[in-house]
């Protein structure tokens, strides 16, 4: 039952799995910027090579990565069509009213497609190899500077980690409520859209009241176990920055340098 959301994480022991979440997050963000540095053919090849290298190092089947692209496929296709049909320049292959298919349009589309897909692949590699809790810890660390702007970073990360922790419980509870309603003769997923939506009301109401009760009990537990947001807390989960993480950062720096050189050469 709890495979739905936490299923993003693929347990494993690859090199990328072992890297500190902070390093992975920084590298992932860096890659988004790097993908915009690819401006010529060699750059494009390098971008794809790096992406496939990262994907194969995770030792996770490529299918999981394609699943990451699927929700965004319409957005990607839409942008591609706009590029192809409305960019002029270079040799024009086809004209029909305001629509033109030109050389520049096709090249632009290829670059945009590559950026989109490689960014998705690389960020998916980060989320597939990092436990949700580690991601939370990593984000907490990276957001630390925001404390000076009085952003409650630690409270936010406690909230996020509790939310993640309770997702499987809520899924179980939803299933239980649905089973209970089915046992009383309710039918889900049939009839008109309006009917289907109406059938969901008896699920959401008990789920809501259950969550409120659960929240109150949890708050009491946190209270008696001495949680006070105004006081400093230590952390049992420790992140450690070692050689691997430094190497990871160096690779990203080298990648930036490579793109800069390719740009200069052409």
């Amino acid at each position: 039952m709890n495979k739905l959301i936490l299923g993003r994480y693929f347990p494993g022991d690859s090199l990328i799995h072992q890297v500190d979440p902070r390093a992975k997050l920084i590298a992932g963000i860096a890659f988004i910027f790097i993908s915009f540095m690819a401006k010529n053919g060699q750059g494009l090849i390098l971008l794809w090579l790096f992406t496939f290298l990262v994907m194969s190092v995770t030792k996770i089947g490529f299918r999981a990565f394609f699943r990451g692209v699927r929700p965004l496929i319409w957005l990607i296709l839409f942008t591609l069509f706009l590029q192809i049909l409305f960019t002029a320049g270079g040799t024009i292959y086809f004209t029909w009213g305001p629509f033109k298919i030109s050389e520049f349009g096709l090249i632009n589309a290829l670059f945009i497609f590559s950026r989109f897909v490689t960014i998705i692949f690389v960020t998916t590699a980060v989320t597939l190899t990092t436990k949700p809790m580690e991601l939370t810890d990593g984000l907490n660390f990276l957001m630390r500077p925001l404390r000076f702007l009085h952003v409650p970073v630690d409270e936010l990360s406690v909230m996020l980690s509790i939310a993640l922790r309770f997702i499987p419980n809520l899924l179980d509870e939803t299933q239980r409520i649905m089973d209970a309603q089915k046992a009383r003769g309710a039918v889900f997923g049939e009839g008109s859209l309006f009917h289907q939506m109406k059938a969901l009301v008896p699920i959401f109401l008990p789920l809501f009241s259950g969550s409120l009760n659960r929240g109150e009990e949890l708050a009491n537990v946190m209270d008696v176990r001495g949680y006070r947001s105004e006081l400093p807390r230590s952390s049992f989960r420790q992140l450690n920055w070692g050689v691997k993480e430094t190497i990871c950062m160096l690779i990203m720096v080298l990648l930036i340098a490579a793109f800069a050189i390719l740009d200069l050469v052409s």
């Binding site: 949680y227 006070r228 006081l231 807390r233 230590s234 049992f236």
Partner: peptide
């Protein structure tokens, strides 16, 4: 969790 709230050092925890 309770020890984190007391800001206890990691080794002790």
């Amino acid at each position: 969790f309770g020890m984190e709230n007391l800001n206890m050092p990691v080794e002790e925890m």
